[in-house]
Amino acid sequence: MRGTSLRTLLVALTLIAGDASAAGGVVVIGDARLARLDAPMLEKIYLGRVIEVDGIRVTAVNASSGSAIRNRFLQTYIRKDDDSYTGYWSVRRYSGLGVPPRELSGSTEVIDFVKSTPGAIGYIDEADVPPGVSVLLK
């Protein structure tokens, strides 16, 4: 009886932990040389105000507009919803101040981009982080 109860408890705890990780867990991955990146600097990068960090030219990528992970990322790190973020970049684009970060669909594309591009920054679900990829912020 006690063994069954303990087993049940452990399974329940695992399920709960899994659910919490999926709900909260957008992580920022990128070039390992950007390990000192903090949230304010990340915000500036995604708003186009910063293009290099510690002498490293950064290239940020976004998830597709309207995707759940993009919404979570924007709310957590940029303090804007998707519409406000799109509106912000519309003003910048038509002020001649640049274009928003490129959009990639899916964690696989983001991971491949980060692995192959010096100075890359992107974001994915925490559950999708593979070995060998640097997590810069979570």
Binding site: G87, S90, V91, Y94, S95, G96, L97
Partner: peptide, 23 residues
């Protein structure tokens, strides 16, 4: 930021985006 070529003089608050009604 340096720009060479044809662009808009920032006379107004909305100079650069005045043609873009959505902004």
């Amino acid at each position: 930021l340096i720009r060479v070529g044809k662009s808009r003089a920032p006379l107004y608050l909305y100079s650069e985006t005045k043609d873009v009604g959505v902004t």
